[in-house]
Design a protein around this nucleic acid. Sequence first.
DNA 1: TTGTACGCGTTATCAA
DNA 2: TTGATAACGCGTACAA
Lengths: 340, 340
Amino acid sequence: MREPDVDKRDETVTADDVAKRAGVSRWTVNRAFKKDASISQKSREKVMGAAKQLGYVPDLLASSLASDRSNMVCLLIDDFANPHKLVMLERLTRFLRKNGWDTLLVNTSDEEDTSAALLNASQRRVDAAVLIGSQFTDRSLATALGARRVRKLIVFARTSENPNTISICCDDRAAMNEIANYIIGKGYRRPLFLAGPQTSSAHLGRKETFLTKWHDTFSTTPEFISVARYDPQLAYDRIVSHFAGRTAQEITDVIVCENDALALGAMDAIRTEMGLRVPQDIAVTGFDDIPQADSANYRITTYRQPLSAMAEGLVQVLKGTADSDQLCHFIGKLVERESA
Amino acid sequence: MREPDVDKRDETVTADDVAKRAGVSRWTVNRAFKKDASISQKSREKVMGAAKQLGYVPDLLASSLASDRSNMVCLLIDDFANPHKLVMLERLTRFLRKNGWDTLLVNTSDEEDTSAALLNASQRRVDAAVLIGSQFTDRSLATALGARRVRKLIVFARTSENPNTISICCDDRAAMNEIANYIIGKGYRRPLFLAGPQTSSAHLGRKETFLTKWHDTFSTTPEFISVARYDPQLAYDRIVSHFAGRTAQEITDVIVCENDALALGAMDAIRTEMGLRVPQDIAVTGFDDIPQADSANYRITTYRQPLSAMAEGLVQVLKGTADSDQLCHFIGKLVERESA
DNA sequence: TTGTACGCGTTATCAA
DNA sequence: TTGATAACGCGTACAA
């Protein structure tokens, strides 16, 4: 016989087809595909056999429509210049998939289109929208919340003061204090803080923590500068302009960067443009521990967020089994390398 | 009056509700939301007004189910160590969104789970699956094709010999020849080719092109080595081990890398581990022109694919208006910097 | 231009 | 454990 086991006709195979073939009702077919349904072992086998022969798989679209659960979460990102985002995407998609959620990726870097994109995603009845960008404005948040079909609005790896929002992040205060203590212990006394975008709706508080800590210790407030995006190139330019015409190593002995993306640019500027050494002339610290932070060229002293635990936290939130007290207090780890 | 214009009840608003409010039928409501439908201006205004008041938006789930078009494409990626992937994600999501498609992101780095993930995506009736990874095996392809609900299987930025597949990529042969000519013109004579994973189902042919070109010119075949993933760290290690105990600059005067991700690692190895200069002792070329290739520290001579045009090509394919002859012959641009 | 069956493939709920 | 009814919200065809 040249006929294959699996029927290859082009029409979609529905549960009805399988039911007919297996000699049961359509609802029994359905139960066979549900994890813990009350169905006899025998029925299930019959159904699964028929399903395999026909090449049947449940239709998630119809399932979502009927059950009002899409099993999709929407990831909103606007921050593609930051290499850390690739790490986050990898981790989140993996953990979500493992727990039965698919990921809808929405690019919100085009401010004009953000609301539309968000609205669009909400029209797919996503179970949650997760903001992993850095630029989202209050308006974005409002749009997201206005879209009533977004059941949960989650801010990932970032603090949000918006009460309608669930924030999953590490304890930035503790983390930054740890970095500050490290720097102080190493004897640095002339820090410069390099911050990212100063948005109001959701931010990191790393700068504030550092400045406060420093002031509490030395009664002086360190200088700080900022760039509009977490982009190494912008950090490079900003550092260059900041020290233009000055003897950098006399003004500053360590640049504390809000994250590694900025640290990369800062280090390039120090070495290439200013011809100085890291850390001998000016030291640098980062945050996130992106892959490049561990590369031979950079070796950045940084802070690693417990991304997997945080992704697991997200899953808990989706399942509704999260301990809300813990969601904003994940503890990471200071990674000491040669940049400071 | 404290009542807002928009009703804020929690129930979902359907086209029926809007119809009632606007005093028309449900189908007129529908037409109002369709771009070019035969409907009077007056009706449309009435409908839109009512819709706004009620906060109605069409349900894409129900729409997809009924029309059998999901307006989603699935992006499959397994290659999160390559920074170029972030660029591709940004570009593709942006272009797709602009043309009405949402993006389902599937992480296939876990080989075991690839088939399941792919199957799952197909159960959502995506209009197309786009492979933008580098490791996908014949088995992945088979799975994808076996899932009959995936209407189109597209390999992006990579050549596929599989006849059931649509490949959208730049002319790698022309590109690599251009790089080879550049190198030859610069007087380099002892090249080493650093390649990525040697998969069979879909590859780049850059190595073959380069080796052939070189052989045609000098009647000698350059040495080549490879790594299992496009990961700077692996490239670093491989370069180090390749030259271990040897005087590198006597053996090799230029390392031709299959892409920038590898070039980053190669440059780090040359400078940090071997203490040599780029390009004076050993030159390096890349491919892709990732953001870091333009950073002060690397300044990689590389080749930029016309990503936007390719993304546009993908849109054409989705719309069914693509010129299939052009899909594999996009022409990019050699970007000359200081690394070679 | 506008309105009407009917179908898309599944789930929730209840009855047997 | 199994079968049946009624949604879920919209699209396609066709008729008015």
